[in-house]
Write a protein that binds this DNA or RNA. Sequence first.
DNA 1: TGTTCTTGTGACTTCACCTCACATGAGACG
DNA 2: CGTCTCATGTGAGGTGAAGTCACAAGAACA
Lengths: 296, 296
Amino acid sequence: MTKRSLPPLTALRAFEAFARLGRMTTAADELCVTHGAVSRQIRSLELSVGLPLTEGPRHRLKLTDAGERLAASLSGAFDRVERTLADLRSADAAELHLSCLGTFAMRWLIPRLGTFHDQHPGLRVRVTESFAPADFARERYDAAIRLTEHVPAHGGEAIAFLDNFHGPVAAPQLVNGRPGVKAFAGLPRLHTRPHLQAWAEWERHTGLSLPEAPQNREFEHLFYMLEAAVAGLGVGLSPFVYVAADIEAGRLAAPVGFVRTPAQFYLILPPGPAKPAAAAFRDWLLDEAGSVPVPS
Amino acid sequence: MTKRSLPPLTALRAFEAFARLGRMTTAADELCVTHGAVSRQIRSLELSVGLPLTEGPRHRLKLTDAGERLAASLSGAFDRVERTLADLRSADAAELHLSCLGTFAMRWLIPRLGTFHDQHPGLRVRVTESFAPADFARERYDAAIRLTEHVPAHGGEAIAFLDNFHGPVAAPQLVNGRPGVKAFAGLPRLHTRPHLQAWAEWERHTGLSLPEAPQNREFEHLFYMLEAAVAGLGVGLSPFVYVAADIEAGRLAAPVGFVRTPAQFYLILPPGPAKPAAAAFRDWLLDEAGSVPVPS
DNA sequence: TGTTCTTGTGACTTCACCTCACATGAGACG
DNA sequence: CGTCTCATGTGAGGTGAAGTCACAAGAACA
């Protein structure tokens, strides 16, 4: 690949505008400069190319043959770039890139996305799983969903769209209808590695404490832990929204109910004007969250 | 035709170089700037396009999908312009545009051009007829041929490549073998409108004067006057080189010979570096003129 | 002949772009 | 692990390319 040797590009742009519009004055208007600037640019281009590009008297300048050919080439080239940029922008506008807690995506978001797609058939939603604090400077998302107490100031919008409640859950056959914390007596305690302090927080929030567990099991993700709870491996602590469907379906039981946490589910938007797709998603999300049942 | 909306072109160029070369440092070298400049340009382009174009850690930056597509489009566009410019330049280099005295072209230059074409098969010579003083600012020629005493200073080269001799000529049957100026007694005098003082100059140069003419005839061009002389319409005054072939062939007679004029034939080159075709023409012309016979 | 329209151009000005120097962050290598 | 290197990010500040302004020039039209 050899080094490019192109004349000054601003001169090319000025010349292309002149060729397209026929007069320097008009071209200057389009470029938001004075006619003198265009005149100089074209002259410098002729010098740099080494060929005359214009000819004729001042008040009726025409292009030389070389000028015509260059202008045709430039128009095509600029058109091409312009079209590519428009394509990129519209492709981007038609896509919503969302950074989301993995479990929330699987247990809450994805099951409900159908109505969003119905409302916005042109929009594709791309969900990327992420637990780290949202950092729009490092990774470019159109929006992020996090469970947190406080969203660090980042210049953008942050909306708490859903309260969080958590509580212990286990397979119904293990609990066996016993009421209160005694329901969990003798059951192994399930933990998630990223949030090992979760049980302690719950005990602080409720003032309750579970019977001593005969065993503790750690899982890499909340999602795996919930699968384990459903499979009867012990008692897990989960946000309500992740298990609402399982409780409804009788796959999990929550004998002591759920308690609200200080943390909430936030929709976090990057700084600057939100793109239309993100705004649409925000509206849909708030509407959808508004109709979510709250635990007893 | 709608107004163009393109991002800053220098940013596009920087981005294209980066995309092509893979690293900002290398791109900066190609563009003869520092890496910082390229970094800033690419950042400003991302801002102006509204899309991220690069991603990944600093030391191993990659293009995003959007970046790849834009880069491909830009490469194509720049290639196209570059190729057009190269075509224009080579087409121009293969052509020699010569501004020449019409009669000189017809009577001297064109008959000899064959050997020039033999020596430079790739070069096309375009001859434009012109009598006005050479003015490269108004009209773009690669070279001009003029008959003059002094070439006005114009910043370029001017080479006297051929001395000029002039003298009266007429059809041989009119002259009828008589010697000296008496040969022309009773013949009409032929003039050219652009140079009505020619006869007076000749008389001054030679100290001779022709017998009173019964008639004067004016022609628009020297070329027409020579045709008239050959046709026997009278006695004309002509530079030697224009009639050498006619005298040789016996179509014209020059009973009093030719006298050198202060004016010479000049090859005049425009200011600035001569293009190769013009240099080749100059060399050929000097060589060709060196072997021209001088009148007695 | 004067008026208007358009481009060319000398003199001056300014801000876009560049450079410099340092910071940052990720590998690589003892 | 600490340090070295390599590539890019960035704040501060300098400068020349490119623009502005005002006037000149040249052609057309009334």
